[in-house]
Nucleic acid binder design. Structure first.
Lengths: 347, 347
DNA sequence: ACGCGTCCCGTAAACGTTTACGATCCTATG
DNA sequence: CATAGGATCGTAAACGTTTACGGGACGCGT
């Protein structure tokens, strides 16, 4: 089966009518529409995407850009795959397909995105790992490509975003640790320019202030968001004099490395050092003591992302009239035992 | 910047010459080529992919199909993301882009692939999770879409594939366990129709035979390849009367669940029950005792996949003249402690 | 009989690119 | 000088769709 022309000839109908029949347009007899659909099914005809895109200027494809640095690719998790399920459940309703665009580790994400945008291979984009100031946002805005970013940015302007509630996470974590008697609380934040690192630290700082605890910069550890980074964090924690009694991790896989380093040094996690991590991961279930952490549904987040995105696309926005353009995605605290040993007042 | 026409007008050159200049064709003055390239860079012109695809019948995009069932998506790992790095390093040399095509969990993989193929959105495909008999292979062959499958199949015919050496893995594992004195060796295989499960079991069976150990079907446990499945496997292991003294797992994440179930029952992994897993995963590093398992480089596998694929594509095959169409990908044994406690002869 | 509207269908242009072909100019060679 | 041939460029067709437009057939009311 070559194209619509062969299909039309086979049916002895004009090519225009066949197209209208297939696309559910009016001005076509219900009877002939049946014939056309049957023949298409029988001959296995599916419209060539290039031809269609060229004519309509639309691809019916949504892109999910994926970044994974050389350092974290080994530890990188099922985050994006977890998202796809929710995304697709919404996109499928509009006959939109999702493709993932993995940015090569040795290419600049901005340049990569620029290429993809210029080639007009997707109608809209979802980007993540949003930086504090992110050129990609300006790029997409100027190119008038609808998009939503997972993570707000200083560059966001009035574009759409959904951000994980890292402010809330930091606050609950500090509250909980303080309630358990901790006063010296360390925090492991990412070493790159990702914006959620800043939000996380801000929340941490303001929470301390709320509890009348002085902010101590030496308790802020900047490491990679990986198991390796967790190990490194543990290492640095042990060096601090007047060692903190608790630590908050921005990424749960770090807990594995942290536990490892602590255990090596004879420091018992949860007993000698309280630990709270983000986010709940099935594969960290094994940790002893069980990690206190925050839960979120990747599927639901995917659904929300898709709806927010569609709301920004003129052709689909009427389906989602009252969709928020911006939103803070809530996390739920899952109490474990890694922070529940009460401390004797040290002084 | 709209299209090549505007670029041509801006340069006051014909549209054909511009196209030739951009694509490095002959019959264009070196001087004007410079001008064209400069102007394209300045105005940010990039060829529209749809137009190009339509004309040349080629998209310059390679698809990596991703399957993840509802059950395993939570546990699914960085396998595909790990592959992309190697894939892209090769594809980039030929200006080919990689996209990942995640099959929705509620859609039949065959139908999904059929849609993607018919829409002509990629030039070639990489498929994985190959089934014992896999209709996708016939589909791609008939559609004359170059492809390589990760995992051979009974349907493979003379198509290209790379298969992980599960036969070798099963054999080494059995050899090692027998050398440690084990005679009753269980095996946890996947419950679906994925072909590597069969190969794994075959290898296991032949290895037993080689050692003069009778094959006992009750020692074959079929579970999902997830942490949950590992737990289930542990559960079933404990039910077997005349309990086996060792178990081989087809997937390393299963070890986490297995350890959990064993510990619950007071059975010490590595001591009361020897364990060998596939494949090495950074996140299973924490397990105590350390898991004996098999290592492979995802990056290198990606490289090999890309080269094998390109070798099947007429336009690129001359770059890879002596590339094997089929290949067994070797794994390296990483000794841990989970199988190294020597047993007293039980009888 | 005439006009008008509705239903259905065919015709052809347009989307942006690549490429076969032919045209022009210039140089070298006899 | 005539001509061959190389270098460079312009022209136009083609890829597979969608869709604006117009036209024929038919029914209905006047």
């Amino acid at each position: 089966m070559k194209g619509i022309r062969q299909l039309a000839e086979h049916l002895d109908i004009s090519i225009g009518t066949v197209s209208r029949a297939l696309n559910g347009k009016p001005d076509v007899n219900e009877e002939t529409r049946k014939r056309v659909l049957a023949a298409a099914e029988e001959l296995g005809y599916v419209a060539n995407q290039s031809g269609r895109s060229l004519r309509q200027g639309t691809t019916n494809v949504i892109g999910l850009m994926i970044e994974s640095s050389k350092e974290t690719i080994e530890d990188s998790d099922n985050f994006f795959l977890g998202l796809t399920s929710g995304l697709q459940s919404v996109l499928a309703r509009h006959k939109l397909d999702l493709i993932m665009l993995p940015c090569p580790t040795d290419e600049d994400p901005y340049e990569y995105l620029k290429r993809m945008v210029a080639r007009r291979v997707v109608d809209a984009m979802i980007i993540s790992a949003t930086q504090r100031v992110d050129k990609r946002i300006d790029l997409l805005s100027k190119a008038k490509i609808p998009f939503v970013s997972l993570g707000r940015s200083l560059s966001s302007g009035n574009s759409s975003w959904i951000d994980l509630d890292f402010d809330g996470v930091a606050n609950s974590a500090v509250d909980r640790l303080v309630a358990h008697g901790h006063r010296r609380i360390a925090i492991a934040a990412p070493s790159n320019e990702i914006n959620l690192g800043y939000i996380f630290l801000d929340g941490y700082r303001r929470a301390l202030e709320r509890h009348g605890i002085a902010y101590d910069p030496s308790l802020v550890i900047r490491v990679k968001t990986s198991e390796q980074g967790g190990y490194q964090a543990g290492h640095e924690l042990l060096q601090i004099d007047n060692r903190p009694t608790a630590v908050i991790l921005i990424y749960e896989l770090m807990a594995i490395g942290l536990y490892r380093r602590l255990t090596e040094a004879g420091v018992i996690p949860g007993h000698d050092l309280a630990v709270i991590g983000f986010r709940e991961e099935p594969r960290a279930k094994f940790l002893q003591p069980a990690l206190t952490c925050f839960r979120m549904s990747l599927h639901d987040l995917g659904v929300e992302l898709a709806e927010t995105l569609l709301a920004t696309m003129p052709a689909y926005s009427h389906f989602y009239p009252d969709s928020e353009r911006n939103m803070i995605w809530p996390l739920k605290l899952i109490p474990g035992e890694s922070d529940s040993f009460h401390l004797m007042a040290a002084e």
